[in-house]
Simulated assay, not measured.
Amino acid sequence: MRELILLRHAETEELCSGESDRDRQLTEHGRAEAIEAGKWLADHKLSIDRVLCSPAKRTRQTAELALPNLPITEALEIYDATPGTLFTLIDQHQDAITLVLVGHNPGIEQLVALLVEGRSEDYRGMPPGALARLRVAAGPLEPGSATLEAFWSP
């Protein structure tokens, strides 16, 4: 893998009593955020060859709006994942040239810190709908082996 794009789901509705967290949907504002993230990706003419997405409704909606013409693979491991779990998942997809992972905080923002800085504790900085574009060093995936090429937030 040469490039990794980490996309946090866009703004969601509040959790209602009796509703499952996995069933929360995007707000109208969140739908607009996801579309804007897709425009950013299109403007940068990235050749994305794989999209992994949490099974939660809000991440699926974000992926479908941001990446409308790409096949999306649900990955159960992404929902409520630690940076270590996400790291392992990404490592299993080293054959992808450009991989997009659509998920949740705090795992997504902590993964950015782990890959770029080599540590993941208490990192904050991925608002809803934000994405981080990382350049991954050749060789095995290691903490601190990526460079933050771009960060975009709606």
Results as ranks from 00 to 15, higher is better:
Gly129Met: 15
Pro68Ile: 15
Leu114Met: 13
Ile72Arg: 02
Thr73His: 01
Val116Pro: 00
Gly144Asp: 13
His104Cys: 11
Glu74Phe: 11
Glu109Ser: 03
Gln94Pro: 07
Val116Gly: 01
Tyr123Arg: 00
Gln110Arg: 03
Ala96Pro: 09
Leu115Val: 09
Pro127Tyr: 09
His104Ser: 11
Asn105Gly: 03
Glu121Leu: 08
Leu65Thr: 07
Glu117Trp: 05
Val116Met: 00
Gly103Glu: 11
Gln110Ser: 05
Thr62Tyr: 06
Ile97Gln: 03
Ile97Thr: 08
Leu99Met: 07
Leu131His: 10
Met126Phe: 04
Gln110Val: 14
Leu131Ile: 13
Leu115Cys: 08
Glu74Ile: 12
Asp95Phe: 12
Thr73Tyr: 12
Gly118Ala: 10
Glu142Ser: 10
Ala96Ser: 12
Pro106Ser: 06
Val100Leu: 03
Val112Trp: 02
Gln61Cys: 14
Gly118Cys: 10
Ile78Asn: 06
Ile78Thr: 03
Gln61Gly: 07
Tyr123Asn: 07
Pro128Asp: 03
Gln94Asp: 01
Ile72Tyr: 00
Leu141Gly: 09
Glu64Val: 02
Phe87Met: 13
Val136Glu: 06
Ala81Val: 15
Asp122Met: 08
Arg60Glu: 15
Met126Val: 15
Thr62Ile: 09
Glu142Pro: 04
Asp80His: 03
Thr98Val: 13
Gln92Glu: 10
Pro106Glu: 14
Asp95Glu: 14
His104Asn: 14
Ile97Pro: 02
Ala113Lys: 00
Ala81Gln: 08
Ala138Gln: 06
Leu99Trp: 00
Gly84Leu: 09
Arg60Asp: 14
Gly103Ile: 13
Val102His: 00
Arg133Ala: 01
Thr85Leu: 01
Gly118Tyr: 01
Ile90Cys: 04
Thr73Val: 10
Glu109Val: 14
Asp91Gln: 03
Thr73Asp: 08
Ile97Trp: 01
Pro83Cys: 11
Thr82Pro: 00
Glu117His: 01
Gly103His: 14
Asp122Arg: 14
Leu67His: 00
Arg135Pro: 11
Gln110Phe: 06
Ala66Leu: 08
Thr98Ile: 01
Gly107Asp: 09
Thr73Trp: 01
Leu89Tyr: 08
Glu77Gly: 10
Ala66His: 09
Ala138Ser: 07
Arg133Phe: 12
Pro106Met: 06
Glu64Trp: 01
His93Lys: 11
Pro68Asn: 12
Glu121Trp: 09
Leu70Glu: 11
Leu86Ala: 10
Leu141Met: 06
Arg119Thr: 09
Gly107Tyr: 04
Val136Asp: 03
Asn69Asp: 14
Thr98Gln: 04
Val116His: 06
Arg133Leu: 11
Asp91Asn: 10
Pro83Ser: 08
Pro128Ala: 09
Leu89Gly: 13
Leu76Cys: 02
Gly84Met: 15
Asn105Ser: 11
Leu111Phe: 07
Glu74Ser: 01
Glu117Met: 11
Ala66Arg: 05
Pro127Gln: 12
Glu109Pro: 11
Thr85Asp: 02
Gln92Met: 04
Glu109Asn: 04
Gly125Val: 15
Gln94Ser: 03
Leu86Thr: 04
Pro143His: 05
Val102Met: 05
Val100Ile: 04
Thr88Pro: 00
Pro71Cys: 09
Asp95Gln: 02
Pro127Asn: 02
Leu67Pro: 02
Gln110Met: 12
Asp122Cys: 00
Gln61Pro: 12
Gly103Arg: 12
Leu89Ile: 14
Glu64Lys: 05
Leu65Phe: 13
Ala96Thr: 14
Gly125Arg: 12
